[in-house]
Amino acid sequence: MENKSTRSLYMIPYVIWIAFFVIAPILLVLYYSFQDLNGNFSLTNYQNFFTPIYLEMTLSSFWYAFLITLVTLLFAYPTAYLLTKLKHKQLWLLLIIVPSWINLLLKAYAFLGIFGTYGMANKLLEAIGMGSKQLLFTDFSFVFVAVYIFIPFMILPIFNSLDKLNATYLDAANDLGASRWTTFRRIVFPLTIDGVKAGCQITFIPALSLFMLTRLIAGSQVITLGTAIEQQFLVTQDWGMGSTIAVFLIIFMFIVMFATGTKRRRARG
């Protein structure tokens, strides 16, 4: 009655999506990365990438992504840990997540006010006698806002892995005379490393490619790979160079994903 071809009709939209919106864009980026400004095949973009300007930019982009991930982790882990000890922990967790549902741009915009010359942060600095400072358009404010943006995404996987932790292990460690620090170092942290890895992956890759935060908060102080791509595509209109940076960003992304191992959870920023 039903032949095979009509039965597979339902697959068409999804297969089209994979072909046109997953595979084709990657191939196109790869193709454009080998084109110079006149549309000829060339390796000049790759040569350009290995000049000090771009290498330095890549390094600084990595440095900031690393810094952001580290600071986020340092604040997220204790928060997640304490959350698991609370009574209505799922509700508290939801309250952590809610800010992440507010449009990113609005949050960045709020910091324009908070870090502004007469904003709240400077009022606070004056009150404790440090005097007002230029906060906006510095790398400090950039890292601060980025950490603010990413922290819910870091807390979530860590919370989940802490929550799954079998409490009897802790009792066992306690009974066998381990101090609280030893218990944490030898048992809790190793058993929740998957959550930490997932959180770092969720933070690090978007942190490499942020561009609107850099533009709004850091001014010209910080240039990330994301800013460079945006610049090449939308300002300079040099799609070839933009694609080349994108190719490297994709390669870095795979390296980070490979390094952080867990293939189960994924995210976008």
Binding site: I18, F20, F21, V22, I23, A24, P25, I26, L28, V29, Y32, I205, P206, L208, S209, F211, L225, G226, I229, E230, F233, W239, G242, S243, A246, L249, I250, M253, M257, R266, A267, R268, G269
Partner: peptide, 20 residues
């Protein structure tokens, strides 16, 4: 294949779709 667009940075999705 399905997950590529979830892990890709937005900038890359945007740039490649612009080309497309």
């Amino acid at each position: 294949l399905n997950n590529i667009l979830i892990v890709s940075p937005d900038v890359i999705i945007g740039a490649s779709f612009l080309i497309l």
